[in-house]
């Protein structure tokens, strides 16, 4: 997975280099240009593919891109329908967005590790991380939107009064003594959802990225020392094996990120 790394670089330098974002700004107002650029490009690509597929007016059996997008749509629709029993039109759109976009972002992990950085280097960028979902900002952004949707759906189902009442009255009952424990537990429950959602995806993709780097270091050891041809072969074998396995993780994590928000929203509408 790795092309030649800079000579004279230590393994630590190599990994740190690959984990450093291309940034502008400072303090909180720092922007990861690589994350934003890649995720926005993928959003454009995914959006363009989906919209062009949706515009096809197929009279008979769908073909090509249209058939593929319909397959994805029916997969998402089926999953949402199993979980949420109500008007699911918006949730299907949400699931579709999350699934396709996250698959695209996760799949960036399968690009040759040093290729994006090298290309970015041609444009004068010193650092470039190509997997937006291995950036906590990328996953937190989606989790925050889901967080707002959870609260919004809950209020819509119960009314603002009912929603606030649930904060103090569930799950231990409406005894004033239980208000504080209730609020505490509800806060934990509510916060845990976006945190676990974002951390799970981030952790998986970050770990996958690191593993690709470690595998790449095998080949680097061959390149800079007399480690032997075995290391190079090891890099090829492990790199290929991890890449194949990673395809599974790419899809699985995207699937989880599609299903869990729907589950959370479905739970948020339930009355306690």
């Amino acid at each position: 997975m790795a092309t030649e790394a800079g000579h004279g670089e230590s393994p630590t330098d190599y990994i740190v280099h690959h984990l450093t974002h291309l940034k502008v700004g400072s303090g909180f107002w720092t922007f990861h240009v690589d994350t934003l650029l890649i995720s926005a490009s993928l959003a454009v690509i995914v959006g363009a593919l989906l919209v062009s597929a949706a515009r096809v007016k197929s009279q008979g059996a769908p073909r090509g891109l249209r058939a593929f997008v319909e397959w994805v749509y029916e997969f998402v629709d089926g999953n949402v329908a199993d979980i949420y029993h109500g008007n699911r039109a918006f949730l299907v759109a949400l699931g579709m967005t999350l699934f396709t976009w996250v698959v695209g972002m996760n799949a960036m992990d399968l690009l040759p590790l040093d290729l994006p950085g090298s290309v970015a280097g041609l444009f004068g960028a010193e650092y470039f991380r190509v997997v937006p979902t291995a950036d906590l900002n990328g996953t937190v952004a989606m989790a925050l939107v889901v967080f707002v949707l959870i609260i919004g759906y809950s209020i819509r189902a119960k009314g603002i009064g009912g929603y606030l009442h649930e904060w103090i009255a569930a799950p231990f009952g409406s005894n004033p003594l239980m208000w504080i424990p209730n609020i505490f537990l509800n806060a934990v429950e509510l916060i845990a959802k976006p945190v676990s959602l974002s951390m799970r995806l981030f952790g998986n993709m970050y770990a996958g990225e690191i593993l690709f780097m470690l595998i790449a270091l095998l080949g680097m050891a061959f390149a800079v020392s007399v480690g032997g041809i075995a290391l190079f072969i090891g890099q090829v074998i492990f790199g290929a094996a991890w890449a194949v396995f990673h395809i599974l993780i790419v899809l699985l994590q995207a699937y989880i990120f599609m299903v869990l928000p729907v589950v959370y929203i479905s739970m948020a509408e339930e009355h306690h």
Binding site: G27, T30, F31, H32, T35, A40, P132, D135, N137, G138
Partner: peptide, 10 residues
């Protein structure tokens, strides 16, 4: 690190 990037992502 969490920074303003997430606003752009949102």
């Amino acid at each position: 690190t969490i920074n303003a990037t997430f606003i752009g992502q949102i």
